[in-house]
Design a protein around this nucleic acid. Structure first.
Lengths: 160, 160
DNA sequence: TATTTTCACTTGCCGAGGCAAGTGAAAGGT
DNA sequence: ACCTTTCACTTGCCTCGGCAAGTGAAAATA
């Protein structure tokens, strides 16, 4: 153990503080968002993201594999979310006419409405928890840093 | 509710970008850490955090409720983690002599060893994913912003 | 002192997600 | 044309975590 600490030193104090704050954010922020969305809309933060992404797509339609990628999801996970959404008539699935291996998911009117209903409070919560505590400059800096980290993590998950 | 939408509508473009990056980080970063730790040590990122926190405590001993708070965990969740840890002889639980309602958890030698084994690669991964992509100034700014957000989110979860 | 309330934790039940194996469609090889 | 391989997804099995109800210990009230 001592030997390992020599070659691969631990985080220094500043790094420790940053790391602890990041851990709290990645653990507690999703928990807070989930609780509010679950209570007020009966969906998870992740499910909200799926609805939002689909609604932004052309024709509100995407291939599942593309949707999974932009939502940072595995395919099995998204598949099961789609099962739930289809059961509630929020989306419809059909094979891609051009290539039968792909599946196209389309947001229905009911799905769009569900999103519209849950959006205002969710957005307000995001603003309250993430944006309100920061100055404009801090937001800029945070955006820059997070974008870099996000890109690195994405590569990690795709390559690993 | 309507009032919120009037005064604070959707996120603007810069906010959208920040928000998307933050979503990727809170979703994909834990996933990446979990995968590596699971593969190489058979534990989750959360479990690693519990071991690490305990090891830092005086006598490697903490009340479960205190441990839960610093790990941003619920008590049921931590209780089940402790079941697993006790089954592997990584911790022992005993009632607090001073107040029988509290339970003290102590890290055993085996538990400390498990932590020491998994630490180097985990720390290296954290450095690679979080610190390496950033300049020194960016790290400082990120730390400042995340600390503020973390404090806000903590208050949210305790108060809600 | 007896009863009630408040803790700190545990347990049971259920839904969600990961992984590995299965299915069906297209592409590649012979 | 056939067989194999490679996709894109789906399904099954299992574990983890959330919530609500249960337990046992201390405090508060009477």
């Amino acid at each position: 153990m001592m030997k390992l600490m020599d070659t691969q030193p631990w985080l220094d104090d500043d790094q420790q503080e940053l790391w602890q704050a990041l851990l709290t954010v990645v653990i507690a922020l999703p928990a807070a968002l989930d609780r509010q969305l679950q209570r007020e809309a009966g969906i998870s933060n992740f499910e909200y993201g799926v609805l939002a992404r689909l609604s932004m797509a052309d024709e509100a339609t995407m291939r599942l594999s593309d949707l999974a990628r932009v939502c940072d999801s595995t395919l099995p996970r998204l598949s099961k979310v789609m099962d739930r959404f289809e059961a509630r008539d929020w989306v419809v699935r059909r094979p891609d006419p051009g290539d039968g291996r792909y599946t196209l998911a389309t947001l229905t009117g009911a799905g769009r409405q569900k999103l519209a209903e849950s959006a205002p409070e969710h957005v307000a919560q995001v603003k309250r928890l993430v944006f309100d505590p920061l100055s404009a400059a801090q937001r800029r800096h945070l955006g820059t840093a997070l974008t870099r980290i996000a890109a690195t993590v994405r590569r990690e998950l795709e390559g690993g």
